[in-house]
Amino acid sequence: MKNPLATLAALALTAASVLVAAPAGAAEGDTVTWSVRPGDENGEDGRAWVEWEADPGQSRTEHLAVTNHGDDAVRFRLSAADGYFTDTGRFNMLPADQESVAAGTWVDLPASVSVAAGATEIVPFTVTVPADAEPGDHAAGVAASVHSTGGGEVGVESRVGFRVMTRVTGELAPSAGLAASASWTGSVNPFEAGDVTVAYTLENTGNARLGTRPEIVLSGPFGLGERTLRGEEIAEIAPGETRRGTVRFQDAWPLLTYDVRVVAQPLPVSDDLSFEGVEPASAQTTVLAVPWPQIVVLVLAALLAAWALFRRRLERRRTEELVARARAEAFAEAAALPARAEPALITAADTHG
């Protein structure tokens, strides 16, 4: 199959979107274009997805509007599955080959619907919360799909749909957990700083969807050179899901050790789903930043200085030995010279004697 949008549709489920795919058994070049949006018995109602609050055991009837934008009638397969948020924050639902075990099993809808060319069919579906459902947020998705092979052996299911979010009443306990690790990478050039890379993992350990934007604080011994960076914003993360992030502190000189602290304040995803007094998640770690290039330079400088001092002392000793040798030779030569007679003294008495 040569249609790239079909592959894209199989990978991501987006609300209120239109995708194109080749239907099963269609001639090459034939396409199906359709959209799926929430609605009521009269048609689309402007919502991007379904979101409601329910007591355990409560049911609710919703509708999905399936519009066929193509030129031929199409039978769409309808499905519901557990929902989740991807690492990029997009909502998705489990593929058809994976069995749902959570909110996806709460949705009851017809197996398929036939839609004439250019027409819209309104399909009711029911969401029933189990009597023993735990309080908090539960994500599911509904979709209309077509299956295509494009003449190949491996088929592709292309689907379009929207999320169905259910908040079960009861005690809401939003919380998050953090884990962090860090590493320091130095430069071979002793006159250049290195980098500290911090990796962290945030997990939604509560029962409510939340958003956050982690802050990462880096400080040397005694708080020297403290700096703060912000990680990527996490717009929405469902209970039980995790997100990973990485930040890099540049110009980090080797100060032997760095302390790293990661803090993430859980935030509500909307004003309608607010909560207060939630403790921030935090994690701490320490990373070694040993200045090996600088130590090598200092050792070499110390060795050169010691060698220069040794050479100076050696030259001084040689000079002193040469001076002492010359002095000894001079004394020896002086001692070897013959004695000279002293001249007689002539006095006046001797002259007139």
Results as ranks from 00 to 15, higher is better:
residue 208 A to M: 15
residue 351 T to R: 15
residue 264 A to K: 06
residue 18 V to I: 14
residue 199 A to L: 10
residue 102 A to N: 12
residue 6 A to S: 11
residue 221 P to F: 07
residue 55 D to R: 12
residue 125 F to E: 04
residue 5 L to H: 15
residue 112 S to R: 00
residue 343 P to N: 04
residue 97 D to T: 08
residue 327 R to M: 07
residue 164 V to G: 06
residue 79 S to C: 06
residue 111 A to C: 01
residue 259 D to T: 12
residue 55 D to C: 02
residue 325 R to T: 12
residue 183 S to D: 15
residue 87 D to P: 10
residue 183 S to T: 15
residue 259 D to E: 13
residue 278 V to Q: 10
residue 59 S to G: 03
residue 130 P to V: 01
residue 315 E to N: 14
residue 219 S to L: 03
residue 215 E to T: 14
residue 152 G to Y: 10
residue 239 P to R: 01
residue 116 A to E: 12
residue 133 A to E: 00
residue 93 M to V: 11
residue 166 T to I: 08
residue 106 W to D: 05
residue 98 Q to E: 13
residue 218 L to W: 05
residue 108 D to L: 02
residue 221 P to T: 10
residue 315 E to A: 12
residue 57 G to P: 04
residue 198 V to A: 11
residue 338 P to Y: 02
residue 10 A to R: 15
residue 69 H to D: 02
residue 266 P to D: 09
residue 76 F to M: 08
residue 72 D to L: 07
residue 304 L to F: 12
residue 210 L to N: 09
residue 339 A to L: 15
residue 114 S to C: 04
residue 245 G to A: 01
residue 159 R to Q: 12
residue 259 D to C: 06
residue 60 R to H: 13
residue 288 L to D: 10
residue 294 Q to H: 06
residue 104 G to A: 09
residue 253 W to E: 03
residue 121 E to Q: 08
residue 176 A to L: 11
residue 326 A to E: 14
residue 302 A to N: 05
residue 39 G to T: 05
residue 307 W to N: 10
residue 258 Y to N: 12
residue 120 T to W: 01
residue 284 Q to V: 13
residue 108 D to W: 00
residue 52 W to D: 11
residue 85 F to I: 08
residue 319 T to S: 11
residue 14 T to R: 13
residue 295 I to M: 11
residue 17 S to P: 05
residue 222 F to M: 13
residue 47 R to N: 10
residue 297 V to K: 03
residue 122 I to V: 14
residue 34 W to G: 00
residue 226 E to P: 06
residue 220 G to R: 02
residue 41 E to P: 09
residue 291 P to N: 03
residue 182 A to K: 01
residue 318 R to S: 07
residue 34 W to L: 00
residue 75 R to S: 07
residue 36 V to N: 01
residue 128 T to K: 01
residue 306 A to C: 05
residue 291 P to A: 03
residue 55 D to V: 07
residue 335 A to Q: 13
residue 232 E to L: 07
residue 72 D to P: 04
residue 293 P to D: 00
residue 190 P to E: 07
residue 103 A to F: 00
residue 98 Q to M: 08
residue 28 E to I: 09
residue 180 A to F: 02
residue 311 R to T: 02
residue 136 G to Y: 04
residue 64 L to A: 02
residue 338 P to Q: 07
residue 192 E to G: 05
residue 291 P to Y: 00
residue 119 A to C: 03
residue 332 A to T: 13
residue 118 G to W: 02
residue 276 E to H: 08
residue 251 D to H: 10
residue 22 A to Q: 15
residue 184 W to S: 08
residue 64 L to G: 03
residue 75 R to M: 05
residue 156 V to P: 04
residue 254 P to R: 07
residue 45 D to M: 00
residue 243 R to S: 08
residue 287 V to A: 08
residue 286 T to F: 01
residue 142 V to Y: 03
residue 95 P to M: 00
residue 139 A to F: 12
residue 336 A to K: 11
residue 32 V to G: 03
residue 85 F to M: 13
residue 9 A to L: 10
residue 17 S to Y: 11
residue 210 L to P: 06
residue 259 D to W: 07
residue 186 G to C: 05
residue 236 E to K: 14
residue 299 V to F: 05
residue 267 L to E: 15
residue 299 V to N: 00
residue 186 G to I: 04
residue 222 F to Y: 14
residue 96 A to S: 13
residue 133 A to T: 01
residue 17 S to K: 10
residue 162 F to S: 03
residue 28 E to M: 11
residue 193 A to T: 09
residue 329 E to P: 06
residue 106 W to K: 05
residue 204 N to L: 08
residue 202 L to D: 15
residue 122 I to S: 04
